[in-house]
Design a protein around this nucleic acid. Sequence first.
DNA 1: ACGATGATGAAC
DNA 2: TTCATCATCGTA
Length: 169
Amino acid sequence: MQKILSQNFFDRDPVTVCQELLGKFLVIKKKWGIYRYMITDIEAYNGQEDEACHARHGKTERNAPMFGLPGHWYVYMIYGMYYMLNIVTWPWTHPSAILIRWVSEYPGPGKVTKNLWIDKKFNGKIANEKTGLRIEDSGHKISNIKTSPRIGIDYASDERKHKHWRFFI
DNA sequence: ACGATGATGAAC
DNA sequence: TTCATCATCGTA
């Protein structure tokens, strides 16, 4: 039996959470079974002062989940085609989240949501057994963590653009 | 290198 | 109400 990560796990700085989140399992419940995928590539979006973060202009209808409780999902549509899956970290006073870019065999944030049929029905929902989408401890110890600048945020300032807030295996 | 495709948010 | 932009991806 695997341990479902609690809200406490996510109630921290997203950069710190990122390093512990690698190697854990994204778990989705379908009508016909439960599926687990290892989380292998993620990015931290860290507060209103982070110009790459959707929270940079304050609370809006779209980014509202980031201004809510940690351990909840933030799902939004991009380019009219793809849903991006994020898990909220830290409390509403410091809106932040982690984008899930790769899990197991699905390399790319759009591919993760497309293949797992994740859409806005999970937006704002808590990550637990009840909502059908959660994160479990895998017991795997990850040692070779790589980092890089975040992808697709050229609009941010140099200072933010260059931060190594992407973590991957 | 580029187009698909629509939600978002800021400006008008 | 309009318009540029966008945490992407498949095709070429």
